[in-house]
Amino acid sequence: MAGGAASGGSAASDTYKEARHWLLMPSWLVLGFFVFAPVCVMVIYSFLTKEFRGGVIWEPTLAAYDQFFFDRGLFGDSDPTLQWTYIEIFWRSIWQAGLATIMSLLIGFPTAYFIATRPDGTRALWVFLITIPYWVNLLIRTVSMKFLLRDEGPMNDALLNIGLIGEPLQIINTNLAVQLGLFYSYLPFMVLPIYASIERYNFTMSEAAADLYATKFTTLRRIVLPAVKPGVIAGCILVFVPSLGAFLAPDLLGGAKNFMIGSLIEEQFKGNAGNWPFGAAASMILLSMVLVLLLIFAQQQRRAGAAT
Protein backbone atom coordinates (compact mmCIF):
# COMPACT_ATOMS: atom_id res chain seq x y z
CA MET A 1 0.00 0.00 0.00
CA ALA A 2 2.64 2.49 1.02
CA GLY A 3 4.72 1.70 -2.06
CA GLY A 4 1.81 2.41 -4.37
CA ALA A 5 0.87 5.58 -2.56
CA ALA A 6 4.40 6.91 -2.63
CA SER A 7 4.89 6.41 -6.33
CA GLY A 8 1.43 7.51 -7.40
CA GLY A 9 1.24 4.56 -9.76
CA SER A 10 3.42 3.76 -12.69
CA ALA A 11 0.96 4.13 -15.54
CA ALA A 12 1.54 7.82 -16.21
CA SER A 13 -1.23 9.04 -18.39
CA ASP A 14 -1.14 12.68 -19.41
CA THR A 15 -4.69 13.53 -20.49
CA TYR A 16 -4.84 16.51 -18.13
CA LYS A 17 -1.23 17.65 -18.50
CA GLU A 18 -2.12 21.32 -19.19
CA ALA A 19 -4.30 21.70 -16.10
CA ARG A 20 -2.05 19.82 -13.67
CA HIS A 21 -0.68 22.86 -11.87
CA TRP A 22 -4.11 24.39 -11.46
CA LEU A 23 -5.45 21.08 -10.17
CA LEU A 24 -2.65 20.84 -7.61
CA MET A 25 -2.97 24.45 -6.48
CA PRO A 26 -5.69 23.93 -3.80
CA SER A 27 -3.82 21.08 -2.12
CA TRP A 28 -0.56 23.03 -2.23
CA LEU A 29 -2.24 26.05 -0.69
CA VAL A 30 -4.12 24.23 2.07
CA LEU A 31 -1.42 21.72 3.00
CA GLY A 32 1.41 24.17 2.51
CA PHE A 33 -0.24 26.75 4.72
CA PHE A 34 -1.80 24.53 7.36
CA VAL A 35 0.57 21.55 7.59
CA PHE A 36 3.96 22.36 6.10
CA ALA A 37 4.22 25.93 7.41
CA PRO A 38 3.15 24.92 10.95
CA VAL A 39 5.82 22.21 11.06
CA CYS A 40 8.39 24.81 9.95
CA VAL A 41 7.20 27.28 12.61
CA MET A 42 7.48 24.49 15.17
CA VAL A 43 11.10 23.96 14.13
CA ILE A 44 11.75 27.68 14.65
CA TYR A 45 10.04 27.63 18.06
CA SER A 46 12.28 24.80 19.21
CA PHE A 47 15.22 27.21 18.87
CA LEU A 48 13.60 30.09 20.77
CA THR A 49 13.89 31.14 24.41
CA LYS A 50 11.08 30.01 26.67
CA GLU A 51 8.94 32.53 28.44
CA PHE A 52 8.27 31.79 32.11
CA ARG A 53 4.88 30.00 32.34
CA GLY A 54 4.20 29.49 28.64
CA GLY A 55 4.97 31.32 25.43
CA VAL A 56 8.26 32.26 23.77
CA ILE A 57 10.70 35.13 23.58
CA TRP A 58 12.12 35.73 20.11
CA GLU A 59 15.75 35.12 20.98
CA PRO A 60 17.50 32.16 19.37
CA THR A 61 18.95 29.59 21.74
CA LEU A 62 19.75 25.89 21.91
CA ALA A 63 18.37 25.71 25.47
CA ALA A 64 15.51 23.35 24.60
CA TYR A 65 17.81 20.77 23.03
CA ASP A 66 20.34 21.31 25.79
CA GLN A 67 17.63 20.56 28.36
CA PHE A 68 16.73 17.42 26.46
CA PHE A 69 20.20 15.96 26.20
CA PHE A 70 22.14 17.37 29.16
CA ASP A 71 21.54 17.11 32.86
CA ARG A 72 22.74 20.14 34.79
CA GLY A 73 21.49 18.92 38.15
CA LEU A 74 18.47 19.92 40.15
CA PHE A 75 19.69 23.52 40.30
CA GLY A 76 20.90 23.90 36.72
CA ASP A 77 24.51 24.78 37.48
CA SER A 78 26.40 21.50 37.84
CA ASP A 79 28.63 20.24 35.07
CA PRO A 80 26.52 18.84 32.26
CA THR A 81 26.22 15.08 32.08
CA LEU A 82 24.08 13.07 29.73
CA GLN A 83 20.42 13.64 30.59
CA TRP A 84 18.66 10.35 31.26
CA THR A 85 15.21 11.66 32.20
CA TYR A 86 13.97 12.30 28.68
CA ILE A 87 15.97 9.50 27.10
CA GLU A 88 14.21 7.23 29.57
CA ILE A 89 10.83 8.65 28.58
CA PHE A 90 11.63 8.11 24.91
CA TRP A 91 13.05 4.70 25.66
CA ARG A 92 9.95 3.76 27.66
CA SER A 93 7.72 4.86 24.79
CA ILE A 94 9.79 2.91 22.28
CA TRP A 95 9.73 -0.12 24.54
CA GLN A 96 5.97 0.07 25.20
CA ALA A 97 5.23 0.67 21.52
CA GLY A 98 7.63 -2.15 20.63
CA LEU A 99 5.94 -4.63 22.96
CA ALA A 100 2.54 -3.59 21.64
CA THR A 101 3.87 -4.15 18.10
CA ILE A 102 5.20 -7.61 18.96
CA MET A 103 1.89 -8.57 20.60
CA SER A 104 0.02 -7.35 17.52
CA LEU A 105 2.36 -9.30 15.26
CA LEU A 106 1.96 -12.53 17.23
CA ILE A 107 -1.82 -12.32 17.07
CA GLY A 108 -2.08 -10.44 13.79
CA PHE A 109 0.06 -12.67 11.59
CA PRO A 110 -1.86 -15.92 12.16
CA THR A 111 -5.10 -13.98 11.78
CA ALA A 112 -4.02 -12.41 8.50
CA TYR A 113 -2.78 -15.78 7.26
CA PHE A 114 -5.99 -17.51 8.23
CA ILE A 115 -8.14 -14.87 6.52
CA ALA A 116 -6.03 -14.84 3.37
CA THR A 117 -6.45 -18.59 2.98
CA ARG A 118 -10.26 -18.50 3.25
CA PRO A 119 -12.34 -19.13 0.13
CA ASP A 120 -13.04 -16.07 -2.04
CA GLY A 121 -16.56 -15.44 -0.78
CA THR A 122 -15.92 -15.34 2.97
CA ARG A 123 -12.55 -13.56 2.78
CA ALA A 124 -14.05 -10.11 2.22
CA LEU A 125 -16.38 -10.64 5.16
CA TRP A 126 -13.47 -11.45 7.48
CA VAL A 127 -11.62 -8.32 6.37
CA PHE A 128 -14.77 -6.33 6.98
CA LEU A 129 -15.02 -7.74 10.52
CA ILE A 130 -11.42 -6.77 11.23
CA THR A 131 -11.91 -3.18 10.08
CA ILE A 132 -15.12 -2.34 11.97
CA PRO A 133 -13.57 -1.80 15.41
CA TYR A 134 -11.00 0.53 13.88
CA TRP A 135 -13.81 2.88 12.90
CA VAL A 136 -14.90 3.25 16.46
CA ASN A 137 -13.47 6.35 18.06
CA LEU A 138 -10.08 5.61 19.61
CA LEU A 139 -11.17 7.42 22.75
CA ILE A 140 -14.23 5.23 23.13
CA ARG A 141 -12.19 2.09 22.55
CA THR A 142 -9.64 3.15 25.17
CA VAL A 143 -12.39 3.93 27.66
CA SER A 144 -14.02 0.56 26.95
CA MET A 145 -10.71 -1.09 27.62
CA LYS A 146 -10.41 0.78 30.91
CA PHE A 147 -13.89 -0.30 31.90
CA LEU A 148 -13.13 -3.92 31.00
CA LEU A 149 -9.81 -4.05 32.89
CA ARG A 150 -10.91 -2.39 36.16
CA ASP A 151 -10.24 -4.29 39.40
CA GLU A 152 -13.99 -4.74 39.80
CA GLY A 153 -14.65 -4.80 36.05
CA PRO A 154 -16.29 -7.46 33.86
CA MET A 155 -13.04 -9.26 33.01
CA ASN A 156 -12.04 -9.80 36.63
CA ASP A 157 -15.63 -10.75 37.50
CA ALA A 158 -15.66 -13.36 34.76
CA LEU A 159 -12.27 -14.78 35.72
CA LEU A 160 -13.26 -14.90 39.40
CA ASN A 161 -16.54 -16.60 38.56
CA ILE A 162 -14.98 -19.40 36.57
CA GLY A 163 -12.42 -19.78 39.34
CA LEU A 164 -9.33 -19.10 37.22
CA ILE A 165 -8.10 -16.55 39.73
CA GLY A 166 -8.72 -16.15 43.45
CA GLU A 167 -8.20 -12.39 43.62
CA PRO A 168 -8.81 -9.66 41.03
CA LEU A 169 -5.87 -9.13 38.67
CA GLN A 170 -4.47 -5.64 39.08
CA ILE A 171 -3.95 -4.56 35.50
CA ILE A 172 -5.26 -1.02 35.39
CA ASN A 173 -2.64 1.68 36.09
CA THR A 174 0.24 -0.61 35.07
CA ASN A 175 2.52 -0.69 32.06
CA LEU A 176 0.76 -3.85 30.95
CA ALA A 177 -2.52 -1.93 30.71
CA VAL A 178 -0.83 0.67 28.49
CA GLN A 179 0.59 -2.04 26.23
CA LEU A 180 -2.76 -3.81 26.04
CA GLY A 181 -4.44 -0.52 25.19
CA LEU A 182 -1.96 0.28 22.41
CA PHE A 183 -2.09 -3.27 21.10
CA TYR A 184 -5.85 -3.15 21.01
CA SER A 185 -5.98 0.31 19.43
CA TYR A 186 -3.85 -0.52 16.43
CA LEU A 187 -4.29 -4.29 15.89
CA PRO A 188 -6.22 -3.89 12.58
CA PHE A 189 -3.28 -1.88 11.21
CA MET A 190 -1.15 -4.99 11.64
CA VAL A 191 -3.60 -7.47 10.14
CA LEU A 192 -4.51 -5.58 6.97
CA PRO A 193 -1.09 -5.08 5.29
CA ILE A 194 0.01 -8.62 6.17
CA TYR A 195 -3.25 -9.91 4.76
CA ALA A 196 -2.65 -7.96 1.56
CA SER A 197 0.77 -9.52 1.01
CA ILE A 198 -0.29 -13.06 1.92
CA GLU A 199 -3.15 -12.74 -0.53
CA ARG A 200 -0.63 -12.07 -3.29
CA TYR A 201 1.64 -14.92 -2.14
CA ASN A 202 1.83 -17.81 -4.55
CA PHE A 203 1.02 -20.96 -2.58
CA THR A 204 2.63 -23.24 -5.19
CA MET A 205 5.87 -22.19 -3.51
CA SER A 206 4.69 -23.80 -0.28
CA GLU A 207 3.69 -26.91 -2.19
CA ALA A 208 7.10 -27.06 -3.82
CA ALA A 209 8.72 -26.82 -0.40
CA ALA A 210 6.49 -29.59 0.93
CA ASP A 211 7.42 -31.77 -2.05
CA LEU A 212 11.04 -31.32 -1.05
CA TYR A 213 10.17 -32.62 2.43
CA ALA A 214 10.35 -29.27 4.22
CA THR A 215 8.38 -29.32 7.46
CA LYS A 216 5.48 -26.92 7.71
CA PHE A 217 7.32 -24.75 10.21
CA THR A 218 10.40 -24.58 7.96
CA THR A 219 8.17 -23.63 5.03
CA LEU A 220 6.59 -20.85 7.07
CA ARG A 221 9.94 -19.55 8.21
CA ARG A 222 12.01 -19.96 5.05
CA ILE A 223 9.47 -19.51 2.27
CA VAL A 224 6.31 -17.69 3.41
CA LEU A 225 7.84 -15.14 5.80
CA PRO A 226 10.50 -13.81 3.39
CA ALA A 227 7.88 -13.50 0.66
CA VAL A 228 5.46 -11.49 2.80
CA LYS A 229 8.13 -9.48 4.62
CA PRO A 230 7.10 -6.08 3.14
CA GLY A 231 3.60 -6.57 4.52
CA VAL A 232 4.95 -7.53 7.93
CA ILE A 233 7.21 -4.47 8.01
CA ALA A 234 4.38 -2.19 6.88
CA GLY A 235 2.14 -3.60 9.62
CA CYS A 236 4.82 -3.12 12.27
CA ILE A 237 5.33 0.50 11.24
CA LEU A 238 1.61 1.23 11.18
CA VAL A 239 1.31 -0.06 14.77
CA PHE A 240 4.62 1.27 16.07
CA VAL A 241 4.44 4.88 14.85
CA PRO A 242 1.04 5.85 16.28
CA SER A 243 1.80 3.94 19.51
CA LEU A 244 4.95 6.01 19.92
CA GLY A 245 3.09 9.31 20.14
CA ALA A 246 -0.02 8.03 21.91
CA PHE A 247 -1.20 9.80 25.03
CA LEU A 248 -4.73 8.52 25.53
CA ALA A 249 -3.62 5.03 26.57
CA PRO A 250 -0.96 6.17 29.09
CA ASP A 251 -3.31 8.81 30.48
CA LEU A 252 -6.45 6.69 30.81
CA LEU A 253 -5.02 3.20 31.32
CA GLY A 254 -1.62 3.88 32.87
CA GLY A 255 -2.81 6.28 35.59
CA ALA A 256 -0.74 9.16 34.13
CA LYS A 257 2.04 7.94 36.39
CA ASN A 258 4.81 7.56 33.86
CA PHE A 259 5.32 10.04 31.07
CA MET A 260 5.43 8.76 27.53
CA ILE A 261 6.53 10.95 24.62
CA GLY A 262 2.97 12.03 23.85
CA SER A 263 2.15 13.01 27.43
CA LEU A 264 5.51 14.75 27.85
CA ILE A 265 4.77 16.92 24.81
CA GLU A 266 1.19 17.57 25.85
CA GLU A 267 2.33 18.65 29.32
CA GLN A 268 4.49 21.41 27.79
CA PHE A 269 1.47 23.04 26.17
CA LYS A 270 -1.56 22.09 28.25
CA GLY A 271 -0.19 21.12 31.63
CA ASN A 272 2.08 22.24 34.43
CA ALA A 273 5.33 22.69 32.55
CA GLY A 274 4.47 25.43 30.07
CA ASN A 275 7.79 25.16 28.23
CA TRP A 276 6.92 25.67 24.57
CA PRO A 277 10.39 25.52 23.02
CA PHE A 278 11.04 22.28 24.88
CA GLY A 279 7.72 20.83 23.67
CA ALA A 280 8.61 21.86 20.12
CA ALA A 281 12.08 20.31 20.45
CA ALA A 282 10.67 17.03 21.79
CA SER A 283 8.18 17.02 18.89
CA MET A 284 11.04 17.58 16.47
CA ILE A 285 13.00 14.67 17.92
CA LEU A 286 9.94 12.41 17.69
CA LEU A 287 9.29 13.55 14.12
CA SER A 288 12.90 12.89 13.08
CA MET A 289 12.74 9.40 14.56
CA VAL A 290 9.57 8.61 12.64
CA LEU A 291 10.92 10.04 9.39
CA VAL A 292 14.11 7.97 9.67
CA LEU A 293 11.96 4.89 10.27
CA LEU A 294 9.84 5.68 7.20
CA LEU A 295 12.96 6.22 5.07
CA ILE A 296 14.33 2.81 6.10
CA PHE A 297 10.97 1.33 5.27
CA ALA A 298 10.87 2.99 1.83
CA GLN A 299 14.37 1.66 1.17
CA GLN A 300 13.26 -1.86 2.14
CA GLN A 301 10.21 -1.61 -0.11
CA ARG A 302 12.35 -0.48 -3.02
CA ARG A 303 14.75 -3.37 -2.47
CA ALA A 304 11.87 -5.84 -2.19
CA GLY A 305 10.40 -4.36 -5.37
CA ALA A 306 13.73 -4.73 -7.18
CA ALA A 307 14.12 -8.33 -6.03
CA THR A 308 10.84 -9.60 -7.42
Binding site: F52, L74, F75, G76, I89, A256, N258, E267, A273
Partner: peptide, 16 residues
Protein backbone atom coordinates in the same frame (compact mmCIF):
# COMPACT_ATOMS: atom_id res chain seq x y z
CA UNK B 1 11.27 32.20 38.29
CA UNK B 2 14.60 30.75 39.41
CA UNK B 3 13.17 28.91 42.41
CA UNK B 4 10.18 27.76 40.39
CA UNK B 5 12.55 26.20 37.84
CA UNK B 6 13.85 23.86 40.57
CA UNK B 7 10.33 22.88 41.63
CA UNK B 8 9.40 22.30 37.99
CA UNK B 9 12.41 20.00 37.70
CA UNK B 10 11.36 18.11 40.83
CA UNK B 11 7.89 17.66 39.36
CA UNK B 12 9.29 16.42 36.04
CA UNK B 13 11.53 13.97 37.88
CA UNK B 14 8.49 12.82 39.83
CA UNK B 15 6.33 12.30 36.77
CA UNK B 16 9.06 10.55 34.81
Amino acid sequence: EQTQAVYDQIWTNLKN
